[in-house]
């Protein structure tokens, strides 16, 4: 990676972190743990579709680790790492079958994969399989928030995608 690419990825990581930290300050939308907007994922989706998987993975990893430090909750890293990995793989797979103007679809499925990952970890950590009853309601929230972040990412790519790729 050249210096320009490195600087660009660093800026994108900083943007993702900024969004993440601001979202931390927002009041919880629902009393259900695990339901959040996940606005920082806009950056992940944008990076995946404009820069490719390697840059997207780097940005996501840095954001997850630094974000957990900022939130002061290392347990959250475990949850978000599991969710993040599944979501990332979903993006990677869908990228091949989606047209440029359909990238918001990938975001929806990535959000659902993220929720699945969270529930899997929660069930493993607390040794409580019955936690899976939360999955449907998390999926509902995942589809809606995934759609929101996906549309935001779509908008971003159509506006600044060209400049990012340069």
């Amino acid at each position: 990676m050249n210096v320009k690419g490195l600087a660009r990825d660093a800026v994108l990581t900083a943007v993702a972190l900024g969004i993440f930290v601001v979202e931390l300050q927002l009041p919880a939308l629902t009393p259900i743990p695990g339901v959040k907007l996940g606005l920082a994922n806009i950056v992940t989706v944008v990076a995946m579709f404009t820069l490719g998987w390697a840059d997207a993975a780097g940005i996501l990893l840095c954001r997850l680790v630094l974000g957990s430090f900022f939130a002061g909750n290392m347990m959250a890293l475990l949850y978000s790492a599991a969710g993040g990995t599944l979501a990332f793989l979903t993006l990677l797979l869908l990228r091949r079958v989606l047209a440029e103007n359909q990238l918001w679809v990938a975001s929806v499925f990535a959000a659902m994969a993220h929720n699945l990952g969270q529930v899997l970890v929660a069930a493993a950590v607390t040794a409580t399989p019955s936690i899976f009853v939360y999955l449907p309601v998390l999926l509902v929230s995942g589809i809606i928030t995934g759609l929101l972040t996906g549309l935001a990412a779509q908008y971003t790519v159509s506006r600044v995608g060209r400049h990012l790729r340069k």
């Binding site: 079958v97 989606l98 679809v105 929806v108 449907p136 309601v137 999926l139 509902v140 589809i143 759609l147």
Partner: peptide, 23 residues
Amino acid sequence: MVKTRTWIVLISALLLLSLGLTL
């Protein structure tokens, strides 16, 4: 490429399914 409409139908179906299960 899959048509956008197909994706919308698929996502709507998943949303309805999850909503139904939640309910």
